[in-house]
Amino acid sequence: MGAYRADEDYDYLFKVVLIGDSGVGKSNLLSRFTKNEFSLESKSTIGVEFATRSIRVDDKVLKAQIWDTAGQERYRAITSAYYRGAVGALLVYDVTRHVTFENVERWLKELRDHTDANIVVMLVGNKADLRHLRAVSTEETTNFAEREKTFFMETSALESLNVESAFTEVLTQIYHVVSKKALEIGDDPAALPKGQTINVGSRDDASAVKKDGCCSA
């Protein structure tokens, strides 16, 4: 096990999903975060795509495996299969299209129906660079986020505004949840779920996995 993927050692592997209406910029947020790329010509996501990136929090390496989903309702049967085992979610809307914000409630319900109650959710108001076209005010979302107990941030994948912070915040919060959990169960690493974390359509609801062996030193 130690020899495998020695070049990308990590302490925690977290599965995160990107959801929200069609055309709000989910794929560009992902490519901005994982590759520092943005494309005006980006295509619609068919089904589910994914990318990874690791960040460092405290002295730990957190590897995020981020699943990007198609926004159209018709794809829900497929995309919701990927919710399982997710410990974080970025629920994206477009600040220039109010209807995409109105649908956030529906997305939230959908997410809570399919995932663990401890999931870290961040509302992301994307396309904040289009200031003259803004249709959703910051206050409106702040109130909503407080009520629903989610995190909230406005971003621009195009201008690379807050993208890094949004993802980092989600991952850090997940890390806090997980380390608190570890503390509660007496810091016994054996009590943490082990084995394959991310399974498409898996029955295994493992939320976060500490990789074997990496912390023994």
Binding site: K43, I46, G47, V48, E49, I78, A81, Q196, N199, V200, G201, S202
Partner: peptide, 20 residues
């Protein structure tokens, strides 16, 4: 064994006939 027996990873290839 990898829980990929449903072949969902081939979803897009079939949906848009390898356009991507």
């Amino acid at each position: 064994d990898l829980d990929g027996g449903e072949y969902l990873f081939a979803f897009r290839m079939l949906m848009v006939l390898f356009r991507r």
